[in-house]
Amino acid sequence: MDLSPLEKHLLNDFQHHLPLSTQPYADMAAQLGVSEAEVLSALARLHEQGLVSRVGAVFRPHSIGASTLAAMAVPPERLEAVAGLINDYPNVNHNYEREHEYNLWFVVTARDEDELCAVLEDMEARTGMPILALPLIEDYHIDLGFDLRWT
């Protein structure tokens, strides 16, 4: 990974507070001693490379609609088919294969609890397999950001 000092600063220093001001990128630029155009083009490049997933708001889980983490124990020979089926739901935004008997882990979101239950039941009916629903009860993470520790 080849990042310029500006890109590193953008990644490390603005994980928390992007200025909520008329010209936030100009404010960031002033803080870093560069031009607004440089900030904008660096952010666009980081976004294109996938290093920044987005510049925007991070919402607290459950503040809008309903969601749950869900897990399935899928026999290896059915994994591709089941994962494809699950991914086709617009309600699914993350889906990971993990090394465990419960090997498929995904997050299901819906407008409300009723829709969430309906989606989970539909998934079970279509895959013929039970889903372990693990909704969040309490969030303990104190959001201090993530030290990227450039080496």
Binding site: G50, L51, V52, S53, V55, F59, R60, D143
Partner: peptide, 24 residues
């Protein structure tokens, strides 16, 4: 409105969100 949602905790932060996986 964004500020209010932030104060209410609906928005945790407005930020450049790094993709940990792509960052190594």
């Amino acid at each position: 409105r964004l500020r209010r949602m932030q104060e209410r905790g609906i928005i945790r932060r407005i930020a450049a969100v790094p993709n940990h996986y792509r960052l190594g």
